[in-house]
Simulated scan of single mutants.
Amino acid sequence: MYLPILAATSLLAGVAYGYASPGACSGVCNMHDPSLIRRESDGTYFRFSTGNRISYVSASSIEGPWTAIGSVLPDGSSIDLAGNTDLWAPDVQLVDGVYYVYYSVSTFGSQNSAIGVASSATMNLNTWTDHGSTGIRSDSSKAYNAIDGNLLNDGGSLLMSFGSFWGDLYQAPMSSPRAVGSSSYNIAYDPAGAHAVEGPYLYKYGNYYYLFYSAGTCCGYDASMPAAGEEYKIKACRSSSATGGFVDASGVACTAGGGTIVLESHDNVYGPGGQGVFTDPTLGPVLYYHYVDTTIGYADSQKVFGWNVIDFSSGWPVV
C-alpha cells in the first residue's frame, strides 16, 4: 500500500490535500455499487446495491445502522438479455413524487447490455414495478456499453449518463423517467490503454455540473492485483453545461483523457469507486462509494460502503 496525496493543480496552486477517512458505517455495510437516497415522507435513508437482483437496505442516517430490506426485483428484469436475473449498478432518483431505480442488464465484459428501470411510490418492499428497458441498449455495433446509468433531473430536463470502457461515457436526453428521448453523445473518453472509465454520476453544485466517474481496474483484486495506481479511483470534470464541455482542473477536456482525481487508495482504503453524490440535509454534499478495506480482505464480496463530505470551496470537489 501507499499513501497518495491529491496533487495541486493550476486552480489549486500551492495546496495539497490528504484524504479523510470514510465516515462511520454500522449494520449492513458490505456491498458493491451503492446508490443513496432519503425518503421525503419520513427522512428514512435507503441504499441500493449490486447483487440479490438489486439489494436494498434502510437506516435512520447515513451512518446506519443499515438494516436489510430485500430485493427490488426478486424475479429479475423483463429485458430479454443474458444477465436479466443478475442486475447491476443501481441508480435511485426521485422524479415528480415517484422513486425510480435504474439498473444494468449485461454479463461481465459483454457489450450486449441495456439500462432498465423500476419504480415505486414508497420504496417499500414488494412495491416495485419493473418497466423493462429505457431504450438505452448496446451491442457490438455501438461505440458504448449501455450500463452504469445515472439520471440527472435538471429542473425538469432529464439526462441519462452511462457507459463503461469501449467509448467510455455517453449521455442521452430522456423523454420521461422511463424512456430515452433522443440519440446519445460522448461526454468523456480516455484514449489510453483499455479506456478504463465507467460509472458516471452528474451532480450540480453552484454554477457547475460535476461529472464524477470511476477509472481503473475495479475488481478481482484477490486474484490479481493491478500495478500500483492502476486500481479503481474516483475522478471528476466540470462544465457550465449539463450536456458537455467537461474539463478537469487543468483545463484538459474529459473527452481527451482529462480528469482530476477526487479520491484514490490511501491508508486502509483501496480501490474506491462505484460512486454517487448525495445531498444530505445536515452534512451537505456527500461522496459515497464502495472500497476494499485492506484490514478485511480484497475480494469483491468483501467491499464495503464508504462516504465523505465534499468541500467545493475551491471550485473542485475535495474529500
Rank of each mutant, 00 (worst) to 15 (best):
G181V: 02
L6K: 04
N112M: 09
C25E: 05
Y144K: 07
A236S: 11
T107I: 15
D86S: 15
A249D: 10
Y210D: 04
H32T: 08
G306C: 08
Y99N: 13
D311L: 01
S301I: 06
T67Y: 09
D280Y: 13
W128L: 10
G43W: 02
S119C: 04
T295F: 01
C237I: 05
Y270W: 15
G259R: 07
I115S: 11
G216D: 04
N150A: 14
Q275V: 15
A121Y: 14
A89C: 11
D168S: 09
P285K: 07
S106E: 10
I296W: 11
A114F: 08
M225E: 04
G163Q: 00
A249I: 00
L169N: 02
V105I: 15
F305T: 05
R178V: 00
V105G: 10
S164R: 00
G297E: 02
G251N: 02
A227S: 12
S113F: 06
V105T: 13
Y100G: 06
Y291M: 01
G206I: 12
P200M: 05
A249W: 00
P4G: 07
H290K: 14
G206P: 13
C218N: 11
P226F: 05
D33G: 07
D168Y: 03
E40C: 08
D80V: 11
A227Q: 13
M123R: 10
S55Y: 12
P281N: 14
P177Y: 02
F305V: 00
S161R: 04
V269C: 00
A256Q: 14
G76M: 11
P65A: 10
L287H: 12
T127A: 15
I234K: 01
A228I: 11
D75R: 13
G97F: 09
S133T: 15
D80G: 11
S314Y: 12
P74V: 08
S182L: 07
S314W: 06
M123K: 08
G199L: 01
I37V: 14
S224N: 12
N145I: 10
D96Y: 10
A228C: 07
S26W: 05
G251F: 00
V92C: 15
D91I: 04
G297D: 03
A215H: 02
D300P: 03
N126H: 13
G284W: 03
T243S: 12
Y201P: 00
M174E: 03
V101G: 08
H195Y: 02
G43Y: 02
S265A: 13
N150W: 06
Y2M: 01
W166K: 13
L151G: 05
T282P: 00
V197N: 02
L12N: 07
A114Q: 03
Y270K: 15
Y289F: 15
S184C: 08
K235D: 02
Y170I: 00
G315Q: 01
T9V: 00
V101L: 07
R137L: 07
A179K: 12
G216L: 06
D130S: 03
D96K: 13
F312A: 09
T129P: 11
A146Q: 12
Y270D: 06
S184K: 03
V309F: 01
G181Q: 00
C254E: 12
D248N: 01
A194P: 03
P22T: 03
T67G: 07
M1S: 12
Y298K: 12
G18L: 14
S58N: 13
R137N: 11
P22L: 10
L73M: 14
G83N: 08
G14F: 07
Q275T: 06
F48Y: 14
V304L: 04
I310N: 05
